[in-house]
């Protein structure tokens, strides 16, 4: 298998280094080799900077993609927002006219976008390159019986014609990944709902998160498993607001999938940065003293 160029984005390396640590620890154990991309910038983000000027947004995204092209590698991201921007750029720049326009800008810095590096979300590397069985085999401490709700988030799946990840109306990739940990995925009624992070309005995201968290609570999930740092921040911060605003008690720790995988692969709970979360997945600790010998 060829290595993959790692596009870490900004939110994970800057605010959530535990997530980056988990990616770097877990992927090699699945046989996935990663190469760092030198000189990458923000993707740029598909919400704010894209709202200012789509052409500049595309130019910077195209520059990031040329860094992977220089290495002759496909690029993967650990954040759904970065995946959205880079995949969309890859898709839009198939248009000759638009590509010429962007290449005129790239010429100023001696670069040229060719469209030779595909964009992958890390979840699809697990599914398509390593396979669920490899995940299962890498697990030394199965999370048996742990009920996990899943938050797909929007940008992993949609727009489906561009993302090409899974059926947006009935996806299964994250359920399968959670099963490979030994855990039990449970689907909540509002599983498809967006977290509302991008909405510049007080009440809308609050109501959305309330709707979502209440159905997660209904299915008695211990953890809300997700694969995007933005979704994570929304649920870790927002849950407190929802609790206050609706005067209802929520305690559903959101956890980035690769931290769960790192834990299941034997990395101790204390090394995974959970103490920095507002809602800590303490229930994981019941696996910490299992009879399995744990290294590290």
């Amino acid at each position: 298998m060829k290595p993959f160029a790692f596009f870490p984005g900004c939110l994970i390396p800057v605010r959530y280094p535990a997530m980056e640590f988990a990616i770097r620890q877990t992927l090699p154990k699945l046989g996935i080799e990663i190469v760092d991309l030198e000189g990458a910038s923000c993707c740029p983000d598909p919400i704010y900077f894209k709202s200012k000027d789509k052409l500049s947004w595309l130019s910077v995204a195209a520059r990031n993609l040329t860094l992977a092209e220089d290495l002759g590698l496909d690029v993967f991201t650990n954040c759904s927002g970065c995946t959205a921007t880079l995949s969309e750029a890859y898709h839009l720049l198939k248009d000759d006219e638009l590509r010429d326009k962007i290449n005129k800008r790239l010429k100023r810095i001696g670069r040229k976008y060719k469209g030779t590096s595909r964009v992958r979300h890390v979840a699809t590397l697990v599914r398509d390159e390593a396979g669920y069985d490899a995940v299962r085999e890498s697990v030394v401490r199965p999370l048996d019986g742990m009920k996990m709700a899943i938050h797909y988030g929007c940008h992993l799946l949609k727009p489906s014609k561009i993302m090409n990840v899974d059926d947006p109306n009935n996806p299964e990739v994250l359920e399968k990944m959670v099963e490979a940990l030994g855990a039990t995925p449970v689907r909540h009624r509002n599983w498809y709902l967006c977290c509302g992070k991008a909405c510049q309005h007080e009440a809308i995201p609050l109501n959305m998160m309330h709707a979502l968290l209440s159905t997660v609570k209904d299915v008695e999930a211990e953890i809300l498993c997700l694969i995007c740092p933005t979704c994570f921040s929304q649920f870790d911060h927002g849950q407190m607001k929802v609790t206050k605003h609706f005067n209802e008690d929520y305690h559903i720790p959101p956890v980035y999938y690769f931290q769960l995988l790192a834990f299941a692969q034997g990395i101790p709970y204390e090394k995974l940065g959970f103490e920095r979360q507002r809602y800590k997945p303490e229930s994981l600790q019941r696996f910490a003293t299992s009879s399995v010998h744990v290294e590290g």
């Binding site: 280094p17 640590f21 000189g39 910038s41 500049s56 520059r63 100023r108 810095i109």
Partner: peptide
């Protein structure tokens, strides 16, 4: 703490040049 190297600055000379419309 996680054994990760410090963040490197983004080459802003390149980014700024890209942001100007032709």
């Amino acid at each position: 703490r996680f054994g990760l190297p410090p963040m490197k600055p983004v080459p802003m000379d390149e980014i700024s040049k890209l942001l100007e419309p032709a």
